[in-house]
Nucleic acid binder design. Structure first.
Lengths: 230, 230
DNA sequence: ACAATAGTGTCTTTCAGACACTATTTC
DNA sequence: GAAATAGTGTCTGAAAGACACTATTGT
């Protein structure tokens, strides 16, 4: 364990764990069990352990597992946040990561795990608010031209469900025909031979799953879903 | 100055300084004046100074200025590279930045400053080769939909010159009409009321410069120059 | 049969690339 | 006037969005 003092740079990782609940992006926050900011809600984070971690990415995966019990199939470096003022203990570096998971794998909301909608963030310690906002920017812009949002779905899902996920992430409706053309172009899905009943009276939708090659990496488009962003 | 030992994470910044020479991207490498890898060519880099640097970005700008004399109008964080093995002194974090500058502001190639073509990189110490490759990926993909390559031009330039710069970065020809439509759409340039003579006999081209608002930040497109990449 | 949603065919609009034409300079 | 490159007008083809139509379920 690093022993921070005035001579040393504090080196940590933080994880922005995102999920979709009721068609809204939510971020997982934990109640801090130690100083500084004890009892405040903050991103899951912790020191890099030079004795066990082979990289910051390892540290992020370890922290996420230790603090939430989750192993995320998608975990990507976001950016590093640095400076003398962001942590009261001293000059610090936080290497931030983001992860997307289906709501179904989240542990029950208790034990200090809070899932809060990203558009109703409470005030957060350190510069965690800024980190979350950077993560949202990244997720939204990557969702325009990649398969990233599929990590918010469970093992299997229908195309209408997947489209709703994209629409929730991007915050606006997508043309159905174009969406299906793009999904086809991405080539990331395979049909499963069972179907799905909609709860009510209608034609059932085909279930799909991610192809094996894309379980842990993205598929990219040249041209993007042309949901206006900018 | 941090005093690295087995207990401490070594915290540094490295800068990938890119420029265009003879229509080819080049990276600036310096001969290291101390161990480890004394006398090897490497990226300009150095320790974060917690007594003077207000952020890693400050550290990168300082290192760049100290080692090359350059103040780059565009300097962006690339990613952080971490692990126990990348630096022989111990577990290290390098927060990497990249910068683009016109060749004209580079100091004379001596005093240990080397400008080498990116497709003929020598073997580099640490994981600097990987850092350079990440920077190239980033620059190329951002060049598809932003004004990034203008930082490779000087104060003023013509549209044919700018197009050549984009083509050099992207490594393939661009349609002239489309390019001009996109430049116009980006809205980042303003005409200067002098013209430019081409060295030989032809119609002179209008000179342009970056609008003030874009001197230190990019302009982005929704749709990109459709130079095929991926 | 009707309601409801899945899935597709096709027309229209928008945008990128091809190409040719005009413009302006030097020789 | 010829050569050379700057700059533009316009046509063509590709891709995105609109919209309507068919398909398949439960009630």
């Amino acid at each position: 364990m690093p022993r921070p003092d005035a001579e040393t740079i504090i080196c940590t990782v933080d994880v922005v764990l995102l999920t979709l609940r009721q068609d809204q992006l939510h971020v997982v926050l934990l109640k801090r069990d130690r100083e500084p900011f004890r009892n405040a809600l903050a991103l899951p984070g912790g020191y890099v352990h030079i004795d066990t971690d082979q990289s910051a990415s390892d540290a992020a995966a370890r922290v996420l597992l230790e603090k939430t019990g989750i192993v995320s199939p998608y975990l990507e470096q976001l950016a590093s946040f640095t400076g003398p003022g962001r942590d009261p203990r001293g000059w610090s570096v936080s290497i931030a990561y983001y992860a997307l998971v289906p709501e179904s794998i989240l542990p029950a909301q208790d034990e200090g795990i809070h899932v809060v909608p990203v558009n109703r963030l409470p005030s957060l310690p350190f510069d965690h608010k800024s980190i979350v906002e950077h993560a949202l920017d990244r997720v939204r812009s990557k969702s325009l031209y990649s398969s990233l949002p599929v990590y918010l779905c469970g093992e299997s899902f229908t195309l209408p469900q997947l489209q709703a996920v994209y629409e929730s992430v991007l915050g606006e409706p997508i043309n159905k025909v174009s969406f299906r053309r793009k999904v086809d172009e991405l080539g990331m899905l395979e049909a499963i031979e069972g179907e799905m009943q909609s709860g009510r009276a209608n034609r059932p939708a085909q279930l799909y799953r991610l192809r094996r090659e894309f379980r842990h990496s993205l598929s990219m488009l040249d041209r993007g879903l042309n949901s206006r962003m900018s």
